[in-house]
Design a protein around this nucleic acid. Structure first.
Length: 593
RNA sequence: GGCGCAGUAGCUCAAUUGGUUAGAGUCCCGGACUGUCGAUCCGGAGGUUGCGGGUUCGAGUCCCGUCUGCGUCGCCA
């Protein structure tokens, strides 16, 4: 090692010691006769001094240092003169008086510096990611990520799980998300698919008798990005045999308790709270609600049937829904203009027909442009059902179930944020369980698997597979943290009769099921144990534990919204020779339609 | 694919109703200075206002198109 210490560890205890530090020049304060340099590595910063003790040559060299030069400084640790300590620095009690100074490497003037106060725009950060990754915040996050993954591995190792790698080059099973495809050279005209998850492999590991499997698995989905979604992401993939839902949930409960304690110092009481899917949709309009605050949805459909107001009455009579949320103290924050914006927002994003609202005045009366359409009794009823208090704002969506859920969920999120109804540092863990097994595809006129086609139904719902598929609930569970889906899993079907029935409902005949999943269906017939598992989104968990707002900040080299890497400029065009070997021809489209 | 926000000096931003030579801080270059820690002081350099059209006597500003980044809806079994 060129160095004897890092830049984050020297204290008064090292006074008088001769040390050698290596690092990057973070900042220079040049007084002519004396130069102060903050030297930085990933452990911290230490002030080094070239001053009276130094000869002219070293002073000249120090004067030539610039931001992000890589230097080696050999010197003596010395307590700083009285009054010159810097309490903001961990090493602020000491400084290193330089005896020998070497420039290990110069740096071009960087487009931005890791220590600068205003963060550059994201494209600049992504293009020069090596500079961005020098920032304290990025380093903290990558260390956090490493600790979380190690915590997971330690926990599962202690519970007898084994870590198995599954293929990256796999078979395309076109269902769900789009695949990333890799052309085969040996078999021209055929393609591998990158895994959307190791789902099928881990089930086969159960059939093979490795009853506790984990993997830190890279997954790929060729779909559009979001702040919390990357095309390439990492999940903690897990599968267990001889288990039911409670066993998987319990295992992950234990993991979350450990991580919360080790990483955040939080004591999580177990079991983590569980909500059924129906409950979540009814109370919050979403299957991953943010439970750090209340503001639950109140159903006013029955009341709406009795009112004169045609907008409400017609919706209710048509079998649709009139539902409300109450923004506590929202009247002051959501002005008429803000409400107009919210109305436009729910109309444009969710196709809602409108947004009705009531403001509760100081005297308890309800003010609204539509108030004249209601009797006093009806107004009182609206107020009491929504638990309205003076200063509150009641927002009502009259629409289909689906639209009212989406609009009210989105409004609830905005209300929680705008009214600061929760502490941003708070963490709330919960499970959403008993998802519907299928949802109906109106356009395709058929049932779709809500999770995947191997998900097992609840035992008590088995007979409804014949009579009422839409009412069948699945042995499925999602882990929700602060309104984000942090993981999801299911118990799998290991009974071939039930599996056949599920395929039938999904419109897959025996022949096409065999074509698509033949190898798994075969394997399931050779002694498949009852099994199930879960996948936890590691990037999202890092984001949530780190209190961050987007997933790119949790990944060393993330992709942009158009799935590009700004640093390497991937994806890129390749040589004609490469394409020829793969028997691939590019069709250039010159029309913009 | 839809909707929205943004793009001006290396970086972060400003520029009145469309008006004359596009400014500031920082960075960079040169100089001064031994106790700074967002050092200070003096001087200097630095611009295809993302790109392409259009309107106008005149466009950073208005219009059309396009590219890039971000947010979001669709999408993500």
């Amino acid at each position: 090692m060129l160095r004897t210490h890092t830049c984050g560890e020297l204290t008064k205890a090292n006074d008088g010691q001769e040390v050698t530090l290596c690092g990057w020049v973070d900042r220079i304060r040049d007084h002519g006769g004396g130069v102060f340099v903050d030297l930085r590595d990933r452990y911290g910063k230490t002030q080094i001094v070239v001053g009276a003790e130094s000869d002219a040559a070293m002073l000249e060299l120090a004067g030539k240092l610039r931001n992000e030069f890589v230097i080696l400084a050999k010197g003596t640790v010395r307590n700083r003169p009285a009054g010159q300590e810097n309490p903001k620095m961990v090493t602020g009690a000491i400084e290193v008086v330089v005896i020998e100074l070497q420039v290990l490497n110069e740096s071009k003037t960087p487009p931005f510096t890791p220590g600068q106060h205003e963060l550059p725009n994201e494209d600049t950060r992504l293009k020069h990611r090596y500079i961005d990754l020098r920032r304290q915040a990025m380093q903290d996050t990558l260390v956090l990520r490493s600790r979380i993954i190690k915590g997971m591995r330690d926990y599962f190792d202690a519970h007898d799980f084994i870590d198995v790698e599954t293929p990256i080059l796999g078979r395309s099973t076109p269902e769900g998300a789009r695949d990333y495809l890799v052309p085969s050279r040996v078999h021209n005209g055929t393609f591998y698919a990158l895994p959307q998850s190791p789902q099928i492999y881990k089930q086969i590991m159960m059939i093979a008798g490795y009853d506790r499997y984990i993997q830190v698995a890279r997954c790929f989905r060729d779909e559009d990005l979001r702040a919390d979604r990357q095309p390439e992401f990492t999940q903690l993939d897990l599968e267990m045999s001889f288990v039911d839902s409670d066993d998987i949930i319990g295992m992950i409960d234990g993991l979350m308790q450990k991580l919360a304690k080790d990483i955040l110092g939080l004591d999580l009481p177990l079991p983590l709270p569980r909500l059924t899917y129906d409950e979540a949709m009814t109370r919050f309009g979403h299957d991953a609600p943010d439970l750090r605050f209340g503001v639950e949805i109140v159903d006013l459909t029955d009341l709406a049937k009795t009112v004169e107001f045609r907008v409400f009455k017609s919706v209710a009579d048509a079998g649709n829904h009139v539902r409300a949320i109450n923004a506590p103290g929202g009247a002051a924050v959501f002005t008429r203009r803000k409400i107009d914006e919210l109305t436009k927002f729910v109309q444009e994003n969710f196709g809602a027909k409108g947004l009705a609202w009531f403001r509760i005045e100081e005297d308890g009366s309800l003010f609204s442009p539509i108030a004249k359409n209601f009797t006093q009794e009806q107004l009182d009823e609206i107020r009491s059902r929504t638990d309205g208090k003076p200063g509150d704002l009641i927002m009502i969506i009259a629409d289909t179930w689906d639209t009212s859920c989406k609009a009210l969920y989105a409004l609830r999120k905005k209300v929680g944020l705008a009214l600061e109804l929760y502490d941003p540092k708070e963490m709330h863990f919960s499970w959403i369980v008993q998802f519907p097994m299928f949802d109906y595809d109106e356009e395709g006129n058929r049932w779709n698997a809500m999770h995947h086609p191997f998900t097992a139904p609840l035992d008590e719902d088995l007979e409804k597979l014949q009579s009422a598929p839409g009412d069948v609930r699945a042995k499925a569970y999602d882990l929700v943290i602060n309104g984000y889906e942090a993981g999801g899993g299911t118990i799998r079907i290991h009974d071939s009769a039930i599996q056949s029935r599920a395929f039938e409902l999904l419109g897959l005949d025996a022949q096409s099921a065999k074509e698509r999943f033949g190898f798994l269906l075969d394997a399931l017939q050779f002694g498949a144990p009852p099994h199930g598992g879960i996948a936890l989104g590691i990037d999202r968990i890092v984001m949530l534990f780190g209190g961050l707002e987007n997933i790119r900040d949790c990944i060393a080299f993330p992709k942009t919204q158009k799935a590009a890497d700004m640093m390497t400029e991937a994806p890129n065009r390749v040589d004609v020779e490469q394409l020829e070997e793969l028997a691939i021809r590019i069709i250039e489209s010159d029309d913009e339609a």
